[in-house]
Nucleic acid binder design. Sequence first.
RNA 1: GCUCGGGUGGUGGAACUGGUAGACACGCAGGACUUAAAAUCCUGUUCCCGUUAAAGGAGUGCGGGUUCGAUUCCCGCCCCGAGUACCA
Length: 931
Amino acid sequence: MDYQFKDIESRWQKFWAENQTFKASNQSEKPKFYVLDMFPYPSGAGLHVGHPLGYIASDIFSRYKRLKGFNVLHPMGYDSFGLPAEQYAIQTGQHPAITTEANINRYREQLDNLGFSYDWSREVRTSDPSYYKWTQWIFMQLFNAWYNLETDKAAPISELIELFETAGNETVKAVCDEEVEQFSADQWLGFSAEKKEQILLSYRLTYLKESTVNWCPALGTVLANDEVKDGFSERGGFPVEQKKMMQWSMRITAYADRLLQGLDTIDWPEPLKEMQRNWIGKSVGALVAFKVEDEKLKGEAIEVFTTRVDTIFGVSFLVIAPEHELVEQLTTEGQKPEIDAYIAQTKKKSELDRMADTKTVSGAFTGSYVINPVNGEKVPVWIADYVLAGYGTGAVMAVPSGDQRDYLFAKKFELPIIPILDAQIDLDKQADATKDGKYINSRFINGKNYQEAIPALIEFLEAKSAGKAKVNYRMRDAIFGRQRYWGEPVPVYFKGELPELIDEKELPLVLPEVDKYLPTESGEPPLGRAEDWKYQSQYEYELSTMPGWAGSSWYWYRYMDAQNGQEFASKEAIEYWKDVDLYIGGSEHATGHLLYSRFWNKFLKDLGYVVEEEPFKKLINQGMIQGRSNFVYRVIDEDGRGTNTFVSYGLRDQYKTSEIHVDVNIVENDILNLEKFKTFRPDFADAEFILENGKYHCGHEVEKMSKSKFNVVNPDDIIERYGADTLRLYEMFLGPLEQSKPWNTNGIEGVFKFLRKFWKLFHDDQFNFRVTDGEPGKSELKSLHKIIRKVEEDIERFSFNTSVSSFMICVNELTDLKSSNRQILEQLTIVLSSYAPHITEELWSLMGHDSGTLSYAQYPKFNPEYLVEDEFAYPISINGKMKMNLNISLMLESAEVERFVLDNEDVKRYLDGKTPKKLIFVKGKIVNIVV
RNA sequence: GCUCGGGUGGUGGAACUGGUAGACACGCAGGACUUAAAAUCCUGUUCCCGUUAAAGGAGUGCGGGUUCGAUUCCCGCCCCGAGUACCA
């Protein structure tokens, strides 16, 4: 039989499913290996050909690791809460659970078609109550925890209460809200229950607080910082505005430093780590208070954060954000009109304008002065929108000689520019931020260098209580609430104003039914519509739901023990699987999912629920598969109207044409299928063509894969035509995994041909199955062992594309050798099986092995002896230019080779009488003659 | 602007620590088989010059450098992609 991929693939997929071939056990003698894919959101559009790229790679890796004797955990599930299902529900009234279920089924079918070796008994769905019960449970642990800076760990809130009862909060070192009043143990004991609760809320790791949020009116919800791009929502691209709201937040900032430190311990792509570092945005500097000079504002001070406290003698003015709380008080009578006008002007500017326009220098003088604590000098206070209210203290000390923005500001408003280091140059043209040289104009640090100046200044400021060293982070606490329906309910109810957790026994708090998926008349989130939805039939539940990242921040643990009804995962399961050894997914989750997951993981570790500080040891980003659009060129007539004539790509310059997207599925290797084109759109039914060599060539361009561009390729279509093994190999063959590349079906034939050729090795010319027993020949063994080593090396370094080429070379060689040797073919089958599991299972069982045993066969052992050569065709180059090859024994050393080479007639001819100056000989590599 | 990637034939790409640039595949051209087509197989295919074959020259974005030898290392520049952006 010829290679019948359809039969073969459906048969083995069925076999694997029925026999649970890939079910992983939580107990094993074998070493564990956990390979994880970023689980998908099941959208209505189904998978396109770009989605499986990472899944194929991780599947190859998983299968390979099984052959290498590992107990492999390779699960899959669905991140099934999310906005699209809800938007669809709003439009159609259809419950999101129903559409989600349908989408999941479709996804599952598509995934199954690809022959993945997932352990489906461990499937999770974040929208399933048996799953989100534990998401809610983790939320409750966070609510019941605080961050102890003494131990640098989270701890149960009960410990904090004990501390308050014995010593108040003066000695407690904890992460908390900024303005928490100080109290003694006695005072604490005297507080009302409500007051205590209020105070505790400012310590809890998840807390409710009035905060400025990114409000997206079009989506009717709050968005996290990483869901907002340039002032628009990442999903949908709707405008986002700032709004004050009571909101649940997660105190991720408590973990800022550990999240930063941890990056050095994990094997992730450097750009991704860099993104997280930038997001966390640690800067080491100092907080300095500048006292306000005005008698009326006695005691008030403006605090600034600076990373260059050494430049403090160069301060010639202070700039505060227009939103700064002291602006009003600082503004003098005379300056009021100017300040008001400036504030009005900045308010008018949208967030976007403000970011785009970084060139124009603008600002206004408040009329007030502050005192520089190091020299007692008067410093004017200005407001300007280049200072951001949200970062640091919303105020900066301006040092025009050292900072370019301050410099431009000083130039524009004619403020002094004071040099502070003797190494600063060109101060008449621009600021110089150097740290080199010795200080000048700087009183007690004059003559010192940078390293000496910083501690001296900190000491001075601390002694005067005017400043201290301070580490600042750009990262903010994460908003943890959406005013939407399709998410996890927050397990909280309200007795009066204050939130309380529901009883753990009540979990899961199931999402209630609502009549419509829209906000209520009074503007409450959709959950406000649920009838009789009250805790203990009397208390109001929290009406917002959890954000999209809640369910995905711990899901890899659920896979370890997916059916557990008592715990999110058993201790034994967690201690066995520990962490993810290999995680494959897109880099778009750099500052969202991957940061939140690390945060929750650290928290769970602090409370002793999990064992590893970092959840994902190694991470690989697969590149994006872009679309590759095809175009036809419609001829335009003299009146500028489109005709029904289409001209081939190469001839289009001879006509006036308009470019039209054409469905890539009716184009092959850029050649248009004319019959299919006529049915593509009704108005093309009687299209005429101007052809090149009898063919219509289409133009092409790389664009995003999208329906409107007619460039979406569905994996099902490819599988229908070539089979899953071909698709798997082809996606790998396309190029390096981590690189983004356009999808292009040109070339898939080559991979398909390869599999047929491989199939033929096992069959005679009449396609009768035939492998021969006996000892393999030297060349066959050489081919085999080359591929054994190559694939091993390639998989370990995630270079899957090069393996595919090597398989082709190997099969070409064996075909040339007319090899049908059982020993050779059996081992080659094992090596290929992780890439092309169906065809190899089929041949494995045809060779007489038990069905399904291939997945747990042993990867062949590489034997270098078969690759040893006694001769090598040395390239002979003259002055570095390769001229010829010469077979020379690998036993020979430099002097002998030199004699042999120079005596050779061809070499003499190339030398043309010239005497060689020198001969370079690198054994097994090259001979280079220098003349 | 800054930080990362990346520029190799008509195309996707290969070349591991400096050692035969273009593996493998697509496409293209020619040929075999066939009444024909599909499928399959064979040959050629970086460019220029030339050709019966040869021989020669250029060549990994551009310009320089180190080296016997550079796609690989160093310096300067150009282009493309991603991230980020008044972060004090």
